[in-house]
Design a binder for these strands. Structure first.
Lengths: 192, 192, 192, 192
DNA sequence: GATGAATGAGCTTTCATTCAT
DNA sequence: AATGAATGAAAGCTCATTCAT
């Protein structure tokens, strides 16, 4: 087993246990045992349990950001681009249920330091903010405060993934996919 | 100090500390001390720290539900009623920032058992579901799955309160109030 | 419910719980609750939990002593009298399994202060000691140290009752009754 | 100090304190402190205070069994063998007063789970049962139920050790040693 | 006599972290 | 890098007892 293997095994196990039992109910001893390493090994790779959580949080957020940015196909038409992003993001969530469940639990939780959460949020939603401002300039997006709209975006995304994770079969139905985007887009779009 | 006083002092102190420090960082000894009672008294009224949290969670949810139901003034026009409810709910949140912060932290947290959160959710959002179905029958609300719309409602409400708590001065401005309702209502309304 | 009733209910409940769960695992609150009285009431009748145990111990020992003394029918023949006593004692044990189980658990346990156990022992086995000495004078009982023989008596009695409580049906069979007495008597009798 | 040393130090200290103060009056902190280890170390080696007690109970019973089995010198004559065993067992008890006191207190106490006591009993007294049956076949041992005779053996042994521990000087006197065996053997022997 | 809320010292157990090997 | 026995401060919780009503 290589060095990377052990570190990765610790991260994989921590993700699984943090989601299944919560951060505080998961002991470092349990993570080490189920990852097949000694307790001391965990602390060779991460200086503390909090640092392990932080690493997990940021790396998963980054993985998510990379995935949806990689799938972007700018069409020149804002609504079309928004729809593509929305579906990319939901696809990633559906394909990575464990990581999505992790977001549901910890995106808003004080378990992860606020500063870290803010950093991740700004990184990911930073370009979302840019898109909103572009759309407002074009008159396509409603002219409300950007911060309010970003919060709304995030809130609707968490709500949508929660629904699709709770009702997994519905994601196969085009009507439900469309519905989730329509809810989102109607809120954001400039009122006619 | 009457019996009710001590129990209430424990609940008030627990709310304050759970919000300020988080559930796990708050010791039962600290709650008791700051509430002015002995540690044993806390456990006389609540069998465990978890049970105290649960009681707190359910009673605040109930208080919220009672408040907005009490303020309802059915007008016969759905959008008007929705707006009144939305503002009532936001008003309550603005007036009870500690309790709203409690919701932000614990509404989705595994700190509170899922079953308890579900129970609270169904109790509070139960009548919201009814309203959505009525609106759909009338053709005023978009004909999407009710569960999806309930999750969306909840997500948007948490996002809006987060925004207004983070930017307290904006709640005084009519335009921001209107904006938050418009975001919500455009999502819910039947697309034209 | 009269005063005596409450005190008696406490004693009955304590006996039951001490036997079922042990002294330390039984809380005074549990005794009071199951006896149908308030916790304070227990401490009106007994100054402490230890005092309750002591009262229980001595009163049951006394009840046992009274029962076998009352049934005595001196025949002038020592072996016959011993057999009668042995069967009386076993009868009482069989008829009062809860109290006998209490003896099994607490006759030798440091839960009851040594001084109290000694007092009870001397009261009950006092007249046994007298009988042993009489028998030794007559040459019917083996001429070993009286303290050794008393301990032996007590040990055999506890062993016999344990056997009959564990195997309740055997007490109906004359052969088993005879066997238990023979074991006892052969030990005590002057070797031929 | 080796690993074994710390675990053994905990066991030695626990034995000493359980006998001197009783199980419930002995705190895990006191055991750890007097054993010269941290409280956590105790729980590193034993999952709970009860588990520590159980380990102690079984290992001492085993030590006793090993000792008397090791000293056995089958002579071909049953009474002679029984006498040798009886004296071996009493010798062990006299030589290990702490462990014998432990037996007196906990052999019948609900502090140790009944199942554990049964297991120890069957292990130790198992070969005693075999000897009884052999003796009955030969007509040397009284033809009473084996379980009754085993209980009687155990009861007499506890009574004898209690006597010799309470009166330590008597064990030096051949007459008392003989007396204790005679009491035992007369009970067990086939009546003439 | 009866009540039961209140007490608080003290308990067992936990667990992130260290460090000698 | 890897190990896992050892640590000890601190946690949640218990429960015999008191006392104002």
């Amino acid at each position: 087993m290589s060095i990377t293997d052990k570190k990765q095994a610790i991260l994989d196990t921590a993700l699984r246990l943090f989601v299944a039992q919560g951060f505080h109910a998961t002991t470092t001893a349990a993570i080490a045992r189920q990852a097949g390493v000694a307790t001391g090994t965990l602390f060779h790779h991460f200086p503390s349990k909090d640092a392990l959580m932080q690493h997990l949080f940021l790396s998963i957020k980054q993985e998510f950001a990379d995935a949806i940015i990689a799938s972007a196909q700018p069409s020149g038409e804002l609504k079309q681009d928004a729809k593509h992003l929305w579906f990319s993001a939901l696809d990633w969530a559906i394909d990575n249920p464990l990581k999505q469940a992790f977001f549901q639990q910890y995106s808003m939780s004080p378990t992860v330091e606020q500063a870290v959460r803010m950093q991740a949020m700004n990184t990911i939603l930073g370009f979302i903010g840019d898109l909103i401002e572009q759309g407002q300039t074009l008159g396509v997006i409603a002219p409300y405060p950007v911060a309010l709209m970003q919060d709304n975006c995030h809130g609707q995304f968490l709500a949508a993934t929660r629904y699709f994770i709770d009702n997994p079969d519905t994601w196969q139905q085009a009507s439900h996919k469309e519905a989730s985007f329509n809810l989102f887009w109607q809120a954001m779009a400039s009122p006619r």
